[in-house]
C-alpha cells in the first residue's frame, strides 16, 4: 500500500472525509456502548441529552467549553506558526495563580478596573512561561515540544508549593487551596440567574480576535508564512524569530486566560485540580478544528458536550464515563486520518 499525493483535493473530499470521521466516531462509540451492555443508540441519545437536553445541561456544556476554547485557541495559534506549544496546561496555571494573587484583596479596586488588570496580568504571566522555551528554540534550537511539556510538571509542582505555602487559605482547614476571590474580582454572569459567566463571552471574543489577527493583520500573515515555510519566509525578509516570539506571547496569553476565566468566573479560588488537563485537551480541540480559530469554538463545544453528556449518560445507563475519553480519542484519530486522506490517495501495490 502506498500514498500518492493529491494536487488539488475536491471540496467533497475536503468536507466529506471529516464528516465521515465524525460518523465513524458515532458508530465505534455505539459498539463500545453495546460491549458495555447498554443500548447503543440510547447511549448516544443520553449523551446528547446530557449535553444539550436542558437549559441546565447546555449551560454546563458552555461552561465546560470555555477553558477549552482558550486552550484550543492557544494551541491553534502556536501550531499555525509551527511553534509546538504543548505547555498550555502550565500557562493556564500561571494565569490562575496571577488571578488569585491580584484578586484576593491585594488590589481593592472596583470590578471595572480590577478585572481587565487581572486578565492582562494573567496573560503576561502565561506569555512569560511560553517565552522561555521559545527563546531556547530561537537561540539554541532546543526542541520546544520537550521544554513546554516538561514545564507543565514544573509549574504544577510550583503551584502545589504555593498552595501549601504563601497562597494557602488560612481558613481552609488545611486543604491545599487558595483564599476565595473578593466579589469585585469575580467575572459576572452573562444573564442574571443563569449559571454562565462572562468567561464564555470573552472566549468567543478571543476566537473572533484571533481570526481577525490571522486573516487581516501583518502579524497574522507573518505567522502563517513562518508556519508554512520558514525558509521562504526568512528569504523574503520576514523576521522569523520575532514572529515566533510574538506568536508565543499570544499563545501563552490565551492559555492563561483559561486559568483566569476558571478562577474568576467559575471556581472563585485556586485548587490543584482546577484543570483536568484542559491544556492537553486544547491540543485535541485545535486539531479537530483544523487550527481554525472559529472552528475551535465548535470543536470545544463538541468535546465539552461529550464530557458533560457522558457524565449524565453514565449515571442513567450505567456505562463508565471512560466512554467519553475513548470517543474523543477515536474522534481525534479518525479526524487525523481524514485530514491525511484529503491530501493523499491510497494505492495498492
Amino acid at each position: 500500500m502506498r500514498l500518492e499525493p493529491i494536487a488539488n483535493p475536491a471540496l467533497t473530499r475536503r468536507l466529506g472525509l471529516p464528516a465521515l470521521a465524525l460518523a465513524g466516531t458515532v458508530v465505534i462509540a455505539s459498539l463500545l456502548a453495546m460491549i458495555a451492555g447498554a443500548q447503543p443508540f440510547s447511549v448516544l441519545g443520553l449523551i446528547l441529552k446530557g449535553a444539550f437536553g436542558s437549559k441546565f445541561a447546555t449551560l454546563e456544556t458552555l461552561n465546560r467549553a470555555t477553558p477549552l476554547i482558550f486552550t484550543g485557541l492557544a494551541v491553534a495559534v502556536a501550531f499555525r506558526a509551527k511553534l509546538w506549544n504543548i505547555g498550555a496546561e502550565a500557562q493556564l496555571y500561571m494565569g490562575a495563580v496571577v488571578t488569585v494573587v491580584l484578586g484576593t484583596g491585594a488590589l481593592a479596586w472596583p470590578a471595572a478596573a480590577l478585572l481587565p488588570v487581572m486578565a492582562v496580568a494573567a496573560m503576561l504571566a502565561g506569555a512569560l512561561v511560553l517565552l522561555v522555551p521559545t527563546f531556547l528554540k530561537t537561540r539554541f534550537g532546543v526542541d520546544e515540544v520537550v521544554t513546554t511539556l516538561l514545564l507543565n510538571f514544573i509549574v504544577l509542582l510550583w503551584v502545589s508549593m504555593l498552595l501549601e505555602g504563601p497562597l494557602k487559605d488560612p481558613m481552609g482547614l488545611g486543604w491545599p487551596k487558595s483564599a476565595r476571590l473578593i466579589e469585585e474580582a469575580r467575572l459576572p454572569r452573562i444573564i442574571d440567574g443563569l449559571r454562565l459567566h462572562w468567561g464564555f463571552g470573552l472566549a468567543l471574543i478571543s476566537a473572533a480576535v484571533v481570526w481577525v489577527i490571522q486573516r487581516r493583520t501583518t502579524l497574522g500573515y507573518e505567522m502563517r508564512a513562518v508556519g508554512l515555510n520558514a525558509g521562504a519566509a526568512r528569504f523574503a525578509g520576514i523576521p522569523v524569530n520575532a514572529t515566533l516570539i510574538k506568536t508565543a506571547l499570544l499563545s501563552g496569553g490565551l492559555a492563561a486566560l483559561a486559568g483566569f476565566s476558571e478562577v474568576a468566573g467559575l471556581k472563585g479560588n485556586l485548587t490543584l485540580d482546577i484543570s483536568p488537563g484542559f491544556g492537553y485537551t486544547g491540543i485535541i480541540v485545535a486539531m479537530l478544528a483544523l487550527l481554525n480559530p472559529l472552528g475551535v469554538v465548535v470543536a470545544a463545544l463538541f468535546v465539552a458536550g461529550i464530557f458533560v453528556g457522558a457524565d449524565s449518560m453514565s449515571r442513567a445507563a450505567g456505562v463508565p464515563t471512560y466512554l467519553a475519553d475513548i470517543m474523543l480519542a477515536v474522534a481525534l484519530l479518525l479526524m487525523v486520518l481524514a485530514i491525511m486522506l484529503t491530501k493523499f490517495r491510497v494505492r495498492r501495490g
Binding site: R224, L228, A232, F235, A236
Partner: peptide, 25 residues
C-alpha cells in the same frame, strides 16, 4: 532564488499572498 518551490514561494499560499511575500510590510 535558486529553488522557487522551497525558497521563492510558499506552496500553500495563494498567488496574492505570494506576490507580496517581500513587500507585505
Amino acid at each position: 532564488p535558486e529553488d522557487r518551490h522551497k525558497t521563492g514561494t510558499i506552496a500553500d499560499f495563494d498567488l496574492t499572498e505570494n506576490a507580496v511575500l517581500e513587500l507585505y510590510a
